[in-house]
């Protein structure tokens, strides 16, 4: 009867978005006569920060303050098409589409500004604070707002842009069958320290230590938020969430939060996180995506740590106390006292 400590490690290569190519998302960007810009998307922000990140990407590409960009994700009936918010694809796919749309809109904005200032558009630059001026001559300037008014009421131009990101279909080498199914991979490594009680089968996660490589972190606080929440979800998948013990008759499965369990605030553990930023060549400003990928390493790392702790290899998730006890019954309890580290 003892509690045994174990440590497990897992690493993952996570292909961003759907494999084999395709996986498109579209964005439309336009200004209104106040010089504020709207990004129209069908992509959904379900709390992960899609709106914030696409807003930053649009503002940076246009060269205007982030406050002047509004992201409208309202309606898949009326918005441009998107495959959806999953597979860590939002920042990468939608971000790229927004960037393309904002580039096209910026070109029109610069042309309209050039017409007002009577210069060549190539001689103009944005200051990121809402003004456009002649390179090297900041006093020859016009505000984005005045450009938008001129475009609308005098020049008869829409300052707008269309963007789509479509991954080329993956080539297959006919000789070898070799292919590269994705263009962009995020990476992670996680170490989990935990304790297994050989009497109750209960697993207590004590500490997580992780490194994530996810391209440029466009919004570091949102990235951290994803990583913290995602590893909680990984722990939840590894140890808690299940339609058992009633499976396969799902009519007998859990019906509510009393029966479908997840770790609560008392089940979480300290988590040391390091973020490595290696810009992705095909990502918007080098970004990949942290969303779904960060939940992945916790599952194998926890399974490995349990093996390290009590020598049982459980290959069906979630690893409930019942499964641990059954496996221990077959294998026999490990020697007590637990190993000291």
């Amino acid at each position: 009867m003892a509690r045994h400590r174990g440590r497990g490690v897992a690493t993952i290569n996570y292909p961003i978005g759907m494999n084999l190519g395709g996986d498109p998302s579209q964005a439309l960007v336009h200004s209104n006569p106040t010089g504020k810009f709207t990004v129209a998307l069908s992509s959904i922000d379900l709390g992960q920060g899609m709106k914030s990140v696409t807003r930053q990407i649009c503002a940076e590409t246009l060269g205007i303050p982030v406050e002047d960009v509004y992201v409208d994700t309202a309606d898949s009936d009326t918005g441009p098409h998107c495959m959806g918010s999953f597979a860590s694809r939002g920042t990468h796919r939608v971000g790229n589409a927004v960037m393309a749309a904002a580039r096209e809109a910026r070109a029109v904005m610069m042309e309209a500004a050039a017409e007002e200032l009577e210069v060549d558009p190539g001689d103009l630059e944005t200051d990121g604070r809402g003004s456009i001026h002649v390179k090297g001559a900041p006093h020859r300037a016009i505000s984005v707002r005045d450009v938008a008014i001129a475009a609308q009421f005098r020049q008869g131009k829409t300052i707008s842009g269309r963007g789509i990101f479509l991954v080329p279909l993956s080539d297959v080498n006919p000789e070898t069958g070799e292919m590269s199914p994705a263009t962009c991979y995020a990476h992670a490594c996680q170490i989990v320290d935990l304790e297994v009680d050989d009497e109750t089968g209960e697993v207590t996660v004590l500490k997580m230590t992780s490194a994530y490589e996810l391209g440029r972190a466009i919004n570091p606080k949102l990235v951290e938020q994803q990583l913290v929440g995602g590893s909680w979800m990984g722990m939840s998948h590894a140890l808690f969430e299940t339609p058992e013990p009633y499976y396969p008759d799902t009519r007998e499965g859990p019906r509510d939060f009393n029966e479908y369990l997840m770790p609560g605030p008392g089940d979480i553990c300290p988590h040391d996180i390091v973020v490595l930023e290696r810009p992705a060549p095909d990502g918007p400003f080098g970004a990949k995506g942290p969303g779904e990928m960060c939940a992945n390493p916790s599952l194998p790392a926890i399974a490995n740590a349990i093996y390290d702790a009590v020598g049982v290899r459980i290959d069906e998730l979630p690893i409930t106390p019942e499964k641990v006890l059954r496996a221990l019954k077959v294998r026999g309890r490990p020697e007590a006292p637990p190993r000291v580290r």
Partner: peptide, 20 residues
């Protein structure tokens, strides 16, 4: 105390740590 106070509240997103 904080964990006790919020342990009846389920959060699907944050992993609780930021809330605590």
């Amino acid at each position: 105390n904080v964990v006790d106070a919020i342990c009846g509240n389920i959060c699907r997103c944050t992993g609780y740590e930021p809330i605590i």
